[in-house]
């Protein structure tokens, strides 16, 4: 069955770039859902089911770390794998995301192969 993903980033450019790279991973994706920050992501998830979330860390309103914290503390969303996508996030920030429950991370720029490998580790 096709994977339904939510891409969370305050840049529309990055959301579209990530979606385009997802189509080149060789994995079967439905058209992605988008959110411009963590608050918007929570709204989207209130009315949509997704198999995977790809999220930036630095965002307005609710940032990526807080988004992970909220999703993992809600039984309705706790099982959704979250991959962090970062330009230059420090190891500390990325480790913090992992300790909060993120499934992994990829640093931009990344290839479709790198993204596919990170997604496959999520065992969707």
């Amino acid at each position: 069955m096709a994977i339904r993903a939510l891409i969370v980033d305050d840049s529309i450019t990055i959301r579209m770039v990530v979606e385009r790279i997802l189509t080149q991973t060789g994995l079967d994706f439905e058209k992605c859902l988008h959110a411009g920050d963590g608050a918007e992501a929570l709204k989207v998830l209130g009315s949509n089911k997704v198999d995977l979330i790809l999220s930036d860390i630095n965002m307005p309103n609710i940032d990526g770390l807080e988004l992970v914290r909220r999703l993992k503390s809600d039984p309705a969303t706790a099982e959704i794998p979250i991959l962090m996508i970062s330009t230059e996030g420090t190891e500390t920030t990325l480790e913090q995301a992992l300790s909060l429950g993120a499934a992994g991370y990829v640093k931009k720029p990344f290839t479709p192969e790198t993204l596919a490998a990170a997604i496959e580790k999520c065992e969707l």
Binding site: S11, I12, T13, I14, V17, R20, T87, E88, K107, P109
Partner: peptide
């Protein structure tokens, strides 16, 4: 133009800001 249907100035600015962000971030790496 390969990513979005519209090309408003806000989208052009967003794209160029992300490009410098990625170039600088990758230079740091």
């Amino acid at each position: 133009s390969t990513l979005t249907e519209s090309e408003s100035e806000d989208e052009l600015i967003d794209a160029w800001a992300e490009i410098v962000n990625m170039v600088a971030g990758n230079l740091k790496t």
